[in-house]
């Protein structure tokens, strides 16, 4: 493992010494804030309710949040898988921090997806939960990545944690389509009546709201990632520093006791 450098980035991405923000992230944050306001205005007020054949009415507005957050979570988990593969290749802290941060934000997006889907289902189907294939496979995906985060918390040694999580990060992503198709197949056998699903025909302002919602979700993802990644990187630096500090303290203790200082201290992180 290469220990994280103290380099704080350059140009727009130069990080504030006391935080995770940079000029770049601040500018993006302001753009994001304005975009969210515009998005909410278009999605909730300006766009027409759905009046097509299988009309969703005002309910269609949930889609503007539901679909972008679903795309956000797939993006996040894809980035986790790529960063995990890159870690296994390059073995640098940065890729590990990227994979971890992305998985965490992905889990937030999955929760948003499940909640918006469930609220939509409550009004459409009359129940909070229906064994809809997409809802079910998303719930399984949520548990898969909660497991990934649980594994990360369970391993103390940074190198060991990075390597094992990287492998799990790749396997988890391979699992997503298997789970998706098996659940899809399972439900298609049992479904007697076609359950209405959240994909109405849309155009005009409604299409714009959906597309813009995706852009906002991506911007939100990037903005959250900038902060979470820098935090993860700082955590890794602190971990490395903490180990050095502990070593120095033990050496000082040994000196104070009048004992000989061991030439090298063998350390092994417990996992």
């Amino acid at each position: 493992m290469t220990s994280p450098s103290t380099d704080t980035g350059a140009g727009l991405l130069r990080r504030h010494p006391d935080g995770t923000a940079s000029r770049g992230s601040r500018i993006l944050g302001i753009v994001l804030l304005v975009s969210v306001a515009v998005f909410l205005y278009v999605a909730l007020i300006a766009s027409e309710p759905d009046k097509s054949l299988d009309a969703q009415g005002q309910l269609v507005r949930i889609m503007y949040i539901h679909v972008p957050s679903a795309i956000g979570c797939y993006t996040a988990f894809f980035v986790t898988a790529v960063a995990s593969a890159m870690y296994l290749w390059k073995r640098t802290t940065g890729w590990d921090a990227l994979a971890a941060s992305s998985a965490e934000i992905g889990v937030i997006f999955v929760i948003l997806t499940l909640m918006s889907g469930s609220i939509w289902g409550h009004t459409t189907w009359g129940t909070w939960w229906e064994w809809d294939p997409r809802l079910t496979s998303t719930a399984l995906m949520f548990v898969l990545y909660v497991g990934y985060l649980a594994l990360r918390r369970a391993i103390l040694d940074p190198t060991s944690r990075a390597k094992q999580s990287a492998i799990l990060g790749i396997i988890a992503f391979i699992n997503v389509p298997i789970v998706h198709y098996s659940v899809d197949w399972w439900r298609s056998l049992h479904q007697t009546a076609t359950v209405a699903s959240l994909d109405p025909q849309i155009d005009g302002l409604r299409l714009f709201a959906l597309m813009f919602g995706m852009v906002v979700a991506m911007m939100l993802y990037v903005w959250l990632m900038m902060h979470r990644f820098r935090l993860a990187f700082a955590e890794a630096a602190l971990e490395a520093k903490g180990l050095d500090l502990a070593l120095a303290e033990r050496r000082a203790e040994a000196r104070a006791d009048g004992g000989a200082v061991p030439p090298s201290v063998h350390t092994e992180g417990a996992s």
């Binding site: 399984l140 909660v146 789970v179």
Partner: peptide
């Protein structure tokens, strides 16, 4: 891992759901 007994089910069961 020290937490292997509690971690294994949460890692494995979603994977073997298919």
């Amino acid at each position: 891992l020290r937490v292997r007994d509690t971690l294994l089910p949460i890692l494995m069961l979603p994977v073997v759901a298919p």
